[in-house]
Design a protein around this nucleic acid. Structure first.
Ligand code: MN
Ligand code: MN
Ligand code: ZN
Ligand code: ZN
Lengths: 133, 133
DNA sequence: TCCACGGTTAGAATTAGTCTAAATACAGAC
DNA sequence: GTCTGTATTTAGACTAATTCTAACCGTGGA
């Protein structure tokens, strides 16, 4: 664990436990936007006790609610989790399905002409394409 | 049925059947980006025979493959269907969850500075906000 | 020490979606 | 018009993702 997980969880109002720490730590170190089951597979052997899927889901939902991570989606229907909470968008390699973070500043300008009826809180750009090499 | 469904399906290589026609017709007339189950509920009594969920899913998948409709998603994990095939983005009312189509021209400019590594095929903007009144 | 409470667990339940096998519908051949 | 092969539909079984339930810890405070 390279990150100070306990402090991160505490400052977000989530009581640190070994299960939560190992899940949050995995999410912070990976960049692969894993599904719940990928999180489960990745961390289940890192604890001295058995890990329940219910705990994984409970923890992921708690972390989302606390603002430590966010949900995102690429293919319709598969929920993925992302510990990168900076303002960013996503590039999806249409061949491999791999997801890359694209900083918000990378999108130079996006002007919306939505009229008076729509008040924009935030927007998210999902980009589909190919990664070279 | 206001639309010429049979012709639409035929020109896309989907053999028209009563089940497919009623499903496609519903998708063309609604603007609500329904889920598979919402489609099922909306059309099941419009046929003289019982309608199977399998047929709804088969038809939706066939229409997506044929390019008659597209899948989209707002909340993580729920697949929705959209018969608007024009180039457009989506505005989600964060209170009601209602989805509004935003023509692509509404977004005046979006310049991406992704470098040589990423080749963009398409992108989609999901906007979250409130609808006034 | 005892208790209350939050957290975890295994497994059951639910839900969305796919698969299977049997029944139907139907277009073309005769 | 009948025959027959193929496509479609159907009900229900199945699977996978997620939530729920109820029992079981573990810990900090009375
Ligand atoms: Mn969720
Ligand atoms: Mn699908
Ligand atoms: Zn990300
Ligand atoms: Zn749309």
């Amino acid at each position: 664990m390279k990150h100070n997980i306990e402090e991160l969880l505490s400052t977000h109002g989530v009581k640190p436990t070994p299960q939560r720490a190992v899940i949050a730590d995995y999410l912070l170190e990976t960049h692969c936007h894993p599904t719940a089951d990928e999180v489960f597979q990745a961390v289940k052997d890192k604890l001295p006790v058995a890990l329940s899927r219910a705990t994984v889901y409970n923890t992921l939902n708690a972390l989302v609610t606390a603002g430590v991570i966010q949900e995102m989606t690429t293919e319709a229907g598969r929920v993925r989790y992302d510990a990168n909470m900076s303002d960013h968008h996503h590039f999806v390699d249409i061949e491999s399905g791999k997801v890359f973070d694209i900083p918000a500043e990378t999108i130079k300008q996006i002007n919306l002409e939505l009229g008076d009826k729509f008040k924009v809180h935030k927007f998210h750009v999902t980009i589909f394409g190919e990664v070279k090499e």
